[in-house]
Nucleic acid binder design. Structure first.
Lengths: 221, 221
DNA sequence: GAAATGTTTTGATGCAGATCAAACGAACTT
DNA sequence: AAGTTCGTTTGATCTGCATCAAAACATTTC
């Protein structure tokens, strides 16, 4: 994976020696906000939801899929987590003790350089997500999600929803009820849903409504 | 400043040689989203607003005051800015060519280490701001802002609003109209406003309403 | 295959905050 | 000092989204 590509062999070995790979069923809380960041987690398989709570409310901050990591910033600062994480599917997770990550970074500037890249990218993705949330309506976010999923899955006019709709709703920052209504709004732009399958009649019509913006939608840049 | 504290002397000199310090009046756009990140900006004096636009709407992402920087992540990734910046006061800004920052980082691991710290901190602050926005109501955000300002300014029961209320409204993610109404809500908790001065009758009563949360409110950790 | 459990959809209602409009107030101009 | 400009406050209304409730579907369990 990218984070370790420029890692010196001995440093990599030291990290892996202290690391352990564990399987978790669906619905397990892997980390909890306010706890000290003792491990860097790397998702090898599955899907993890990052979220935060306050005063009885909860908000989804993002999702991590292979080979993403969490929470690098907390590990590097040797601070508490600001977010919690739970598995949404059966997952395999590689865990590296935080102290090892910090000493590996101090010992290997190739690794540190990769960390800078990973941090900067994660930071930028968070800013994009913030813009997505604050500058778009619910149906607009859904339209952009469909377009992205379509691009990702291939050019067919059928798009599969590869997660429960309640999870998709959380990802898009809305309730399941409003996701359902958002699909109804998009009917007017040639979208029909049948169970877990979306049909896109006209990509252009949907794209016009969605107002695609690379400064929000292009990930990993 | 912290970012350069562990910087090697020759690397620091090289950075400063290429840098230039410039004054700007209030209301100047320093950078614009979608443009290539050609400079790292360091605010030496004044106040800068970070914001983003899309489809005729605009949202404030944060503020930078001395000695804060922007936008490190874009400079390091050699990508376009995702945010725009404008001065809210007369400001002095130190600008360093992006290429120099990247090569300084490659040459000096002390500097790279400081960059990691700065990036991680900025990232965490953004997550905190996101939680502040999504998990609290407008009046709650205002209450927490008052408590923070009070702690920062000293323990008097008077708190000065050191910016226009329209700016404060943007910082709190609301319209000026709603800021005014939020102050009215807080009357019930012992808050009175007179022009740019806030009086806090009972810190405890306000704090109970505000539901202070270190995972949202403690900055720089 | 019937029951039980969980998910999605639909409908009705409520609320926080945005928007629009106008009044008010403070600071600056001449 | 009167007038202009700009920021703030107040009131009325609108809107998007959440919430609550219940029906419609799907999936799992026995």
């Amino acid at each position: 994976m990218r984070l370790f590509r420029d890692c010196r062999d001995d440093v990599f070995d030291s990290l892996m020696q202290a690391a352990f790979l564990q399987r978790f069923p669906r619905g397990v809380e892997l980390i909890r906000e306010s706890e000290p960041a003792d491990m860097l987690h790397i998702i090898v398989e599955g899907l993890v939801q990052m979220f935060a709570s306050h005063g009885g409310r909860e908000t989804t901050i993002g999702f991590v899929r292979p080979l993403g990591t969490f929470i690098l910033a907390a590990v590097l600062r040797d601070q508490v987590y600001l977010q919690s994480a739970r598995t949404l599917e059966r997952s395999r997770v590689l865990m590296i003790p935080a102290e090892r990550v910090r000493s590996a970074m101090a010992a290997d500037s190739g690794f540190m350089s990769a960390i800078v890249g990973e941090l900067a990218m994660g930071y930028r993705n968070t800013v994009k997500e913030l813009k997505n949330q604050k500058l778009r309506s619910g149906p607009e976010r859904l339209a952009n999600w469909i377009l992205r999923a379509q691009r990702f899955q291939g050019k067919s006019d059928r798009v599969a929803i590869e997660m429960e709709k309640r999870v998709l709703a959380a990802r898009l920052g809305m309730t399941p009820e409003n996701l359902s209504r958002a699909f109804n709004v998009l009917k007017a732009y040639g979208i029909t849903v049948q169970g877990a399958e979306i049909r896109v009649d006209s990509r252009d019509r949907l794209a016009a409504y969605a107002k695609i913006n690379p400064l929000i939608d292009d990930f990993t840049t």
